[in-house]
Design a protein around this nucleic acid. Sequence first.
DNA 1: CTGAAAGCGCTAACAG
DNA 2: CTGTTAGCGCTTTCAG
Lengths: 352, 352
Amino acid sequence: MTWGRACHDVRVSSSLKDVAARAGVSARTVSNVVNGSARVSEQTRVRVQEAIDELGYRPNLAARSLRAGRTGIIGLAIPELHSPYFAELAGLIVDEAHRRSWTVIIDQTRGDAEAERRLLTGDGGRVMDGLVISPWALGAPDLTATARPLPVVLLGERSPQGMADRVAVDNVAAAEEATAHLLSSGRRRIAAIGLQPHLENGTARQRAEGYRRALRSAGVTPRAGWERSVTALHREDGARAMAELLDGDAAPDAVFAFSDELALGALHTAHARGLRVPEDLAVVGFDDIEDGRFSHPPLTTVSPDKRQIAARALQCLADRIYSPRNEVPAADLTIPHRLVVRGSTVGDAATR
Amino acid sequence: MTWGRACHDVRVSSSLKDVAARAGVSARTVSNVVNGSARVSEQTRVRVQEAIDELGYRPNLAARSLRAGRTGIIGLAIPELHSPYFAELAGLIVDEAHRRSWTVIIDQTRGDAEAERRLLTGDGGRVMDGLVISPWALGAPDLTATARPLPVVLLGERSPQGMADRVAVDNVAAAEEATAHLLSSGRRRIAAIGLQPHLENGTARQRAEGYRRALRSAGVTPRAGWERSVTALHREDGARAMAELLDGDAAPDAVFAFSDELALGALHTAHARGLRVPEDLAVVGFDDIEDGRFSHPPLTTVSPDKRQIAARALQCLADRIYSPRNEVPAADLTIPHRLVVRGSTVGDAATR
DNA sequence: CTGAAAGCGCTAACAG
DNA sequence: CTGTTAGCGCTTTCAG
């Protein structure tokens, strides 16, 4: 006995069939009205619409996607939502998905290799039509190994066998430019903050490579003590690394941080130690997050075209979702970047 | 003729039935193995598991939720993902949802009233089991008007008729404390940045109320020219408002910004104008985002317990999702906050 | 312990 | 133009 029924304003949810009954038509006709799939006489259209409104009918997406074999939902897996770079990127991806009438499920891996692997193997049910993932713990080998039952776009990390599309900036070139910029202002004792030798992931490795390449091109010998590793990419890690550098036997006159957050942490330490930026220490970051535009001094940084990353990534996904031909070779898209020079590297009375 | 079948590594996706056939059992048994719902002999269990692995079977969530009437997906609707406060909160909510085996769909309203209304009316199909929404454009009246077919938790804004649960800090009290802190250090020319008279939303109104209340308690007459409105809550808005204040006929010696982002923007302008913080100008923010801990100087701010906001909000949702009794009156949970005092209000040689 | 079968809400092929 | 109907893949009641 379901006596709860007595309460008239507790309508669970009406189905297509309910609407059909109320409008005195068949389910087929209601479906047509909802989707505009076939021509319906104006008269019945109105009657059906009334029934829909009165019953507050909403199509059940589960049923619909069970039929269609598609959910209209894509996954976005990033290490950390609270990291400004990923938050900005996620915002753009959600916008872009909106344009395509997709909904975005956000998964936060917290840099957990197992979580990333689970996502790639499509565990957790076939909810997503596709996945955009920015691997952090996983590196190239892992990405090849897993068989992927769903369209995947990798942000940043490359899959060596071309098993998935990849969208990223040219990390080596970008890091080289950033370092060259410091060299061009006469700095020679240039440190790097952000190496992550404990991770398979190659992004930090590529940036380190670009950094060293620029040094060598300028005839400066890379110095192991000036390459600081970090466990995470937060401000506090940058602050700590900077402190270690300043406490070392030879203090640098410039720092290239592999992310803006690290750079902002380094700035923090520099200020705390009474260093003038950029006079005593020049700082370059990577990502162009909004905080860097308003920091003191504003941060010189490598700015990837985030909007384009979002757009291209979803385009790749759409291509694979809507054309089941698996023959398409994996795309490897290089997104443009530019060096944005601000007060943290170039002296300017107004900013200090 | 579906000749694509010939390609053996293009398996679309195997169903429960396929697994059953391969294992030589019925679908029922496979279901039991997958869900552990009934006792299955070890022997068949193993055989079924093998079949699952060989076929790479993943349960179809659409089908499952069609049966269950529940999707295991909750919605999170926030104005902007790239805003640090919402990004941090979203991260915590995703974590908390994870703990409950829920998936989170993120919707970004960009402060669009229509988008917020659409979400509340449950448009877009019954995908979500519940919704956590932080209304920005919508105010109390709108929130009452809409009939909500799904459990909703409001962050910040109160629904006057108690139509939905609400989780928020005590904005008036928090603003009053922040302002009192400035007063206690001897400041009297205290400005406020962040009013949004054009919005229905009451959050800014409450903070303004607390601000004025503190001034009056100290015998200071609120001054209209020191209450600055903003269109958005970004750094640039704070920077602009600060510039207007400094260009006004009477410059303030302290600022209470209704968000950390606004406060950081204000700091930016203060630095650009050569003001010393906190000597010439003290600044307090609201939200306690990470940037504020590493800004120069570090930002004094009102810190809401974000982790608790996330936990309580999802608890409310769970209560409604799992107990269909609609009788439960709407909860109105006040989350604790505390004032975190840092260098932007209290002089300290080390931070400047 | 396992099999058969109904049905969740929707779409689309087939009739009329 | 509209009605009937067969599943999409899964869970679950009822038998065996």
